[in-house]
């Protein structure tokens, strides 16, 4: 059985170089997705559920560190970075797998062998180390108002009034307390702009304002749905996110 992998780098050449080098270093590896930024990488992870993720540290949207935090031990992570990144020192002390750009075939081979040796065990738990690294990243303030074109007018919807966002083909549907609107910003980009404390992703295609959730109901072993305060529809919670609703 082939091992599946995701690679993510925001620059074209290093991404292609990594793909090429991995092809030579790991013959059974199947690269299922090449992501061009952090938001894309997280979305691709949810879509393909690869076993190994090679993540550039500095990426727009979500940094490699943030993507790894979200992956939360559900895949083996190898960071890719250029020399001079402040994270390298932490990687060294934390025994985190990483390779430096430009990629050196011998060093990549070592990293690959280490991951291969651990494939049948649970991935390393990096959460503590990653939470130390994440605050070093500067972020603009979260989105407070969503602008949606409705016919000839532009509606300004307060983030607090949004019940949930849902991917809808090339658009994102904004369901709020007073109706619905469509915006062009893809859900995966929106995710990086919203306040993560208030807005929870519950499915690859759904982000919900947790203040509008009434309950989470387990349907069977694999399925869970959310009921909402102001809306009749039920939202599915995919497997990756079910652990958020565990009762206290």
């Amino acid at each position: 059985m082939n091992i599946t992998a995701l690679i993510a780098d925001d620059e074209e050449a290093p991404r292609a170089q990594l793909a090429l080098a991995l092809h030579q270093a790991w013959s059974g590896l199947q690269i299922v997705a090449e992501a061009v930024n952090g938001a894309d990488a997280w979305d691709a992870f949810l879509e393909h559920e690869p076993q190994v993720c090679f993540l550039d540290v500095r990426m727009p949207g979500l940094s490699g560190i943030e993507v790894a935090q979200r992956i939360a031990g559900r895949a083996h992570v190898v960071f890719v970075t250029a020399h001079g990144d402040h994270a390298v020192a932490a990687f060294d002390t934390g025994a985190v797998d990483y390779v430096l750009k430009p990629i050196d075939a011998a060093r990549l081979q070592q990293a690959v062998q280490r991951v291969q040796g651990r494939l049948h065990a649970a991935p390393l738990d990096l959460q503590r180390l990653l939470s130390q690294l994440a605050p070093a990243l500067r972020k603009p303030p979260p989105l407070e108002v969503v602008q949606a074109a409705v016919g000839r007018e532009v509606r300004l919807i307060r983030a607090a009034d949004v019940v949930y966002f849902e991917s809808d083909a090339r658009y994102t549907r904004v369901v709020h307390t007073e109706g619905e609107a469509l915006i062009r910003t893809p859900l995966k980009e929106l995710l990086t702009q919203l306040d993560p404390v208030q807005f929870w992703q519950v499915h690859r295609s759904v982000i919900v304002n947790h203040l509008h959730i009434l309950s989470a109901v387990r349907v069977d072993e694999n399925n869970m749905v959310l009921t909402l305060r102001a809306r009749p529809e039920k939202l599915p919670v995919s497997r990756h996110f079910q652990a958020m609703f565990k009762g206290q």
Binding site: A16, A82, D85
Partner: peptide
């Protein structure tokens, strides 16, 4: 910055 140099070299190397 080393970061700038190595990222640029990475592109040069690949090309």
């Amino acid at each position: 910055q080393p970061h700038f140099i190595f990222n640029t070299l990475s592109a040069v190397q690949h090309w």
